[in-house]
Simulated scan of single mutants.
Amino acid sequence: MKTHLLLLFLPVGMFGVDSHGVSVMEGDPVTLPTNVTITQQEDVKYYFNNTLIAQLTGDLRFNCTDVQCNEANKRFRGRLKLDNETGSLTITNTTSTDTGGYHQEIIGSGTIHENIFNVSVHNVSAAERDEIKRNSAKEGESDTSDSDENNLNDSGRLILAVAGICAVVVIAAFAFATSARCAVNRQVVLNTQTMASFPPTQDRRRALIL
């Protein structure tokens, strides 16, 4: 009787691919994040048009960007910044030629996670850029004005509350003083009446002493 052995070849780890859309204006930087903290056991690689443009490994000797990874790749010319802690890649001073798909690979212990960043760099004129900046500045001023108005409203409510408390204290003090004055007057009246009930002799003096 023959025994047949069936061999199954399974992938080493789970493969996941996420797609992201990124849109920026020409000249602005764009960052392609990993959203993780890279360990020495993980490698991060970036490809543009199937060409390696950046690499972060556990061995600093093999870390590279742009022409360091591929001498023929002169597209970015020193505009790539690789974060050694997170593995994120930043493209500075973007141009319309940077538009395209960027393939990110995070290679760990038996796992590979992939991200696809579809970057769109919009070419805008200087006038359009100034208009956008002005609108952004106006929005910031509006937010500041709203914040100041809220602060003034809060201050006004606080002043009214303090004024109300002071009014209550003044009224209470006035009422106490009035009550004390009435008590004194009442005592004077009682003494006067007591004195009147005695003859104007030694007994009156006794009443005064009492």
Rank of each mutant, 00 (worst) to 15 (best):
55 Q>T: 09
99 T>Q: 11
55 Q>M: 09
194 T>K: 13
161 A>E: 15
80 L>P: 01
176 F>P: 00
153 N>F: 11
147 S>P: 00
180 A>G: 00
146 D>Y: 12
20 H>L: 09
54 A>M: 05
48 F>V: 09
200 P>L: 05
199 P>D: 06
20 H>A: 10
206 R>H: 11
103 H>C: 01
68 Q>V: 10
21 G>K: 13
81 K>S: 07
106 I>S: 07
115 N>K: 09
68 Q>W: 09
123 N>W: 01
181 R>Q: 10
75 R>L: 12
18 D>Q: 10
203 D>Y: 12
199 P>T: 07
64 C>T: 08
112 I>H: 05
50 N>P: 01
51 T>H: 02
56 L>M: 08
201 T>L: 04
188 V>I: 15
35 N>Q: 07
143 D>N: 10
82 L>F: 04
149 E>F: 12
83 D>A: 08
17 V>E: 13
134 R>S: 11
16 G>T: 14
51 T>Y: 00
205 R>V: 15
175 A>T: 14
71 E>M: 02
156 G>R: 13
43 D>Y: 02
131 E>K: 06
181 R>N: 11
59 D>W: 03
166 C>W: 04
112 I>A: 12
180 A>Y: 13
113 H>E: 11
54 A>F: 03
143 D>W: 03
111 T>V: 08
85 E>L: 12
89 L>G: 07
94 T>Y: 05
104 Q>D: 01
56 L>N: 03
89 L>P: 02
125 S>M: 04
155 S>N: 05
163 A>N: 12
34 T>S: 04
25 M>F: 11
119 V>W: 05
20 H>Q: 13
10 L>V: 08
122 H>D: 14
23 S>Q: 11
139 E>T: 08
198 F>G: 09
120 S>A: 12
